[in-house]
Amino acid sequence: MIDTGLRWFAATLCIAGLTHIAAILLAPSHSRDMAFTGVDFSKTDGTLVLVDNRNTSADLDPAFLNAVCRFDDETGPVRLTGTMPGRYWSVAAMSEDGRILSTLSREDLRGTDMDLLVGRTATLDAVRQSAGLESIETMSLPVDRGFLLLRLFAGSLDDRGRAEEALKDLRCRPALSE
């Protein structure tokens, strides 16, 4: 009787363990609120889409102006161009499930002019050659699909104004469309 009870108990623990492992491993790819997948990118025309707690569930810093740009199989590598504001900013490339793959911040860039090529490692060289982009900052990623998240510090009214101005002029376009 005890042996049977122990066997059933062990079976319960085994099923619990397998369920636990499966739930943890599947969570990133089956999350209900995957990064910025709910954001409407249809009317962007090269501009970045402003994101905050109204259109994304991502846990973003409200002291920043956060904007995203999508890249996928259709766009291929994307090129981010514009002038960055003086105060703190950063660019993060994220996979669709919200994991950060690569980042670039103010300290990594000389000056304020941004010209950044982002995409899968294998496609970047081809794009650089065909578009004649030899001396350009690159962000080489292991994925074809994801998001570029731009954070511009907007902690005060002045900073917010500067960040909004900078955001208006920033462009994120498929690199091969230019």
Partner: peptide, 26 residues
Amino acid sequence: EDDAKANPYEAARAARRGGGGLGPSE
């Protein structure tokens, strides 16, 4: 640590938060 790719718990946590965490150079 949202960039801790080797840790499945961190990856699940990042997915639950919907992304937006900071990368190491940020």
